[in-house]
């Protein structure tokens, strides 16, 4: 398993470089213009000058090479400099956003806290409620609990968040006034009051997203448990006099986890991709909002950096999922 992991990690490098190239070419080919959001009162000659200043005049392979150089060499140097006070980078050009003309990693750093608080928390909450719901629904198939769970999760998945979010705002912000409708990204949790304020502003977006995540994961959990509950080994285990708890939570659960692990592992990178619509509805301004404004503004360095980081996480977590398969079911071997 160790050699397999190392081999996969080494193989990940050319994979990622290839992915980077494809994303870059895709962005290059996509129609759109960083100046599309500028007022029409700016004449074409001035626009042309502005495009040149953004470096759009260079050939694509030079821009791609420059991006890789900056991503893998310059930015880590700046990171080390910031941590240890060294001066490795020596003023080298960083990856600069077209929109704000500032280093993209600074902006990404600003966005991390709210993304982790809201999207990350909702994912953890979603997983934590999805697993027991899935298990109980499967164990007591067609009970009231199961029927209710099915109803809620199907509605949770099929009603878009742009709708549930606005309903929540109307009820809890406009009518009841319990929660703020606009997320304050500058709030720092220093004492009990600010912690309560943070919880209040997180409540609605976390609820919406957690419902969505839990719906999906609980469906897979339930289906997989149902498959395994009917297997012969369950009957054998029961016949051997094991308690229901051990049978269900140890044997069946372990064997049912493979599809669930897959779904969870696929979801983790998406946490860092942010939740575009929910962030927009609640004005969370996390990574999702950053990505969508960058795409709309054709901010190629920003989109490229974000999607590439996203790609790294996808490759990494799919590797973790593959390793976990082997842990859950030792019969699975890759060597």
């Amino acid at each position: 398993m160790l050699t397999y992991s190392i081999r996969r990690l080494i193989l990940a490098i050319p994979t990622l470089l290839f992915i980077a190239l494809i994303i870059f070419l895709l962005l290059l080919l996509a129609p759109g213009d960083p100046l599309a959001n500028m007022p029409l009162t700016i004449p074409p000659e001035v626009r042309e000058k502005m495009r040149e200043a953004l470096g759009l005049g260079e050939a694509w392979y030079i821009r791609f090479g420059l991006f890789l150089w900056q991503f893998f060499i310059v930015e880590p140097q700046y990171m080390i400099d910031a941590m240890f006070g060294t001066d490795l980078a020596d003023g080298a050009q960083r990856i600069i956003s077209f929109q704000s003309r500032s280093p993209v990693f600074d902006t990404i750093g600003e966005r991390m806290p709210q993304t982790l608080w809201v999207v990350g928390m909702s994912y953890v909450v979603g997983v934590l409620i999805a697993l027991p719901i899935g298990i109980i629904s499967a164990y007591k198939q067609y009970s009231i609990f199961d029927q209710l769970g099915t109803l809620i999760s199907m509605i949770g998945f099929s009603v878009p968040t742009f709708f549930t979010g606005v309903v929540l705002i109307l009820v809890f912000s406009v009518n009841l006034g319990w929660f703020p409708s606009i997320y304050d990204t500058q709030l720092r949790v220093t004492d009990w009051d600010s912690f309560v304020a943070q919880m209040r502003q997180m409540a609605m977006p976390v609820f919406v997203l957690a419902l969505f995540n839990a719906s999906q994961i609980s469906r897979y959990m339930r289906a997989s448990m149902l498959d395994n509950l009917g297997q012969d080994y369950v009957r054998t285990a029961r016949a051997k006099g094991m308690t229901e708890k051990v049978v269900v939570l140890k044997h069946v659960l372990r064997n049912s986890m493979i599809p669930v692990i897959t779904v969870i592992a696929l979801g983790v990178p998406q946490v860092f991709g942010g939740a575009i619509i929910t962030e927009q509805v609640f004005k969370v301004n996390g990574l999702g909002q950053l990505l969508i404004t960058a795409i709309q503004g054709n901010d190629i360095p920003m989109v490229m950096t974000l999607t590439f980081m996203f790609a790294i996480l996808i490759v990494l977590f799919n590797l973790i999922a593959d390793i976990l398969y082997g842990v859950l079911d030792p019969r699975i071997r890759y060597d």
Partner: peptide
């Protein structure tokens, strides 16, 4: 999409300048 329509990408057939349509609507000042 506004980012394409109002963008000046010469490679895109959908910009308002290229005008691959008979009439188009927008606002200016």
């Amino acid at each position: 999409d506004a980012s394409v329509f109002f963008g000046g990408d010469p490679g895109s057939p959908d910009t308002f300048q290229r005008f691959y349509a008979d009439v188009e609507m927008y606002a200016n000042n």
